[in-house]
Design a binder for these strands. Structure first.
Length: 598
RNA sequence: GGUCUCGUAGCUCAGUUGGAUAGAGCAACAGCCUUCUAAGCUGUGGGUCGAAGGUUCGAAUCCUUCCGAGAUCACCA
């Protein structure tokens, strides 16, 4: 899924270096020899070239090679000066070079949007169960999925966002049975409860009743724990309901449709609040049968085998895994069978170049097996399957456990963040001059921005800690800080009476601080490319934060509107505009909106 | 037990895919609003990069072993 090359400052310098050193040494300079990176802050220069590869060509010491190189490079017309420290060649670019880079950025209407790649990527994320409301873990999944989709689109790929809803099975039957027994006809309309929460309550009720029945069975009938687990009447009722559902019993299917409908209404509300959406939604009730064909295929090819009880397996022990079940002895399919089937169906329908599953790392094993099995069946596109495996979200008290009631509900969390955002904004007097609609929209941006940024700034693959107190902090490395920077710039541009875009003007030479800002803006498209290659929104978050931080320093130390020199003022306005645009584009890739006032 | 992931400041995290003296935020302390938004800015303190070996000009980053944390190995999804 590599994207194309970008003509940023670094690549321009690289080709300059290749030309100059090719001439100097009289050999073709391979791209890999030019190892260049940002100069450390304590040294003079913009980029640093490592001289070791060239020492080999000239058979001189690395230090001497560095000196030779510095001579050759100072000839380049974009280079201001060169200095060497040991085997490091520090290159300082001309101020005019940076002014030119700013102009290029300003004239790029789609700054940060890379050219079309022609690749089609299917991205599966969210994939909830319909027996309980979404929680903090789902939030990480949804935010990651949405952001990665945005990033891949920015990288020029066609992205198809899909959701696979787990709407059938024993878990939903549990909620249904409990509702039948204790519900007394309660509906979201009658109780005013959100549909997914309502169904979730009955799931909990089931569990409570189930436990009570087990306890009483063990105490009164003297059965073992395992026997009690099977014999409890309410569990028997759930199993019976599943059997009826699979047999297509009308009343059961009708109840199932009604209760799932409630859940979908609830999910839709939460999805809308989170600002995520899908291009296509798959339901397990449609796909669970898929994969049986694959089982036949695997059996006939001798890749799968049938046991005496007629269950079907694949032996993956040679690949370091275990034997995996593909078909139960009663002929029904399992999760793996279904996933094999949907993958094949999706490939036939869409012919993707890449199929990405955003699923927690507890399923690493499953996806390892999935790829392996498809490979063994001879599907070349198995290589296109990628499991974007993200780490669990933990609380300061430890892991979330639904049984202990420590699960953080998605809707509650969002509501809480909105409340806090409102309080803090009010306290600071930020909403004083706003209409209620405007204030509500601003509070919304701040609250959701805080939540999204807090989660997305962490490398997806790492287990992360969600500290509620820290997540609603609006200072430091937070979305609010970045949003505030954007609002400040908008305020400056408003007062100037323009949108700050000053066309393709040529600019006066930027000062050191201004060059720092141009550099941070300049790397944005390259950062988007890296974020796409690594499927990591965290890279975008860091990049935007660095930029906002640098701008706030600049804002504090340098006048913009009050600058008397018109040419310098012009440069600073253009720079401010470009910073605001980059912040806006970057935050959009995280699914975060930025206000013009706050 | 097998497989996989992780371990960086008191806490939460970065670290440009092997580069120079490892960086931010929070928390603590000390400053800055009569000047474009103080949700901001400046400064101080804080490190055996889990440990030990190895690879090489050079390692937080790669390899080995050990220690510690987590995930997974169901006729659940």
């Amino acid at each position: 899924m590599e994207t194309g090359k970008i003509t940023d400052a670094k690549s321009i310098i690289k080709s300059g270096i290749a030309g100059a050193l090719g001439k100097f040494y009289g050999v073709e300079i391979d791209d890999s020899m030019i190892q260049i990176y940002k100069t450390r802050r304590d040294f003079e220069g913009d980029y640093t070239l490592f001289a070791f590869p060239f020492a080999k060509i000239s058979k001189k010491s690395p230090e001497q090679a560095a000196i030779d190189i510095s001579g050759a490079l100072s000839e380049l017309n974009i280079v201001d000066s060169v200095n060497t420290v040991k085997a490091f060649v520090n290159i300082k670019m001309k101020a005019s070079f940076w002014a030119e880079r700013l102009t290029v950025g300003l004239n790029d209407a789609n700054f940060g949007q890379l050219p079309r790649s022609g690749q089609r990527i299917m991205l599966e994320y969210s994939s909830p169960n319909t027996n309980k409301p979404l929680h903090l873990g789902h939030i990480r999944n949804n935010l990651l999925g949405w952001s990665v989709a945005k990033i891949l689109e920015a990288c020029g790929h066609e992205v198809i966002k899909v959701n696979l809803v787990n709407d059938r099975g024993i878990h939903i039957c549990k909620s249904m049975v409990a509702w039948q027994q204790f519900g007394a006809g309660e509906t979201p309309q009658s109780s005013g409860k959100k549909g997914d929460h309502l169904v979730g309550e009955y799931y909990v009720k089931f569990d409570r009743e189930y436990k009570a029945q087990q306890k009483s069975l063990i105490e009164n009938s003297g059965v073992t724990e395992a026997e009690a687990a099977v014999e409890a009447p309410i569990f028997a009722a759930a199993r019976e309901m599943l059997r009826k559902w699979e047999a297509g019993d009308e009343a059961t299917v009708a109840l199932w449709k009604t209760m799932n409908g409630w859940v979908y209404e609830g999910f839709d509300a939460t999805y809308r609040r989170l600002g995520v959406a899908f291009d296509k939604i798959y339901y397990e009730s449609d796909t669970w049968i898929l994969g049986k064909k694959i089982v036949e295929e695997g059996l006939s090819k001798g890749i799968f085998y049938r046991k005496d009880d007629s269950s079907v397996w694949i032996d993956l022990t040679a690949d370091g895994l275990d034997a995996k079940l593909l078909l139960r002895s009663d002929g029904t399919t399992v999760y793996m069978t279904q996933d094999l089937g949907t993958a094949e169906q999706r490939y036939e329908e869409y012919g993707f170049d890449k199929l990405i599953y955003v699923v927690g790392n507890e399923q690493n094993y499953h996806f390892q097996a999935l790829r392996l099995i498809l490979n063994k069946l001879g599907h070349r596109w198995a290589e296109a399957i990628y499991h974007l495996s993200y780490g669990m979200v933990e609380l300061p008290e430890g892991k979330m456990k639904s049984r202990e009631g420590t699960v953080v509900d998605a809707d509650d969390l969002i509501a809480e963040m909105q409340k806090t955002a409102r309080e803090v904004s009010d306290e600071l007097g930020k909403l004083n001059e706003m209409s209620e609609t405007e204030a509500a929209a601003t509070v919304d941006m701040i609250a959701l921005g805080a939540l999204k940024y807090y989660i997305l700034k962490v490398d997806p693959k790492k287990t992360m800690l969600f500290d509620p107190k820290e997540s609603i902090d609006f200072n430091g490395n937070t979305a609010s800080f970045i949003q505030y920077t954007h609002a400040r710039i908008c305020s400056v541009l408003r007062k100037h009476g323009s949108n700050g875009f000053l066309g393709s003007n040529s600019f006066v030479k930027p000062s050191k601080k201004e060059i720092e800002l141009i550099k941070l803006i300049e790397v944005f498209p390259e950062t988007v490319r890296m974020a796409g290659d690594n499927l990591s929104p965290a890279l975008i978050a860091n990049c935007v934060y660095e930029l906002a931080k640098e701008y706030n320093q600049f804002y504090h130390d340098y006048p913009i509107l009050k600058e008397e020199n018109a040419a310098i003022k012009n440069l600073r306005l253009a720079l401010s505009y470009q910073v605001a645009l980059t912040i806006k584009n970057g935050m959009a890739l995280l699914g975060i909106d930025v206000p013009e006032k706050m």
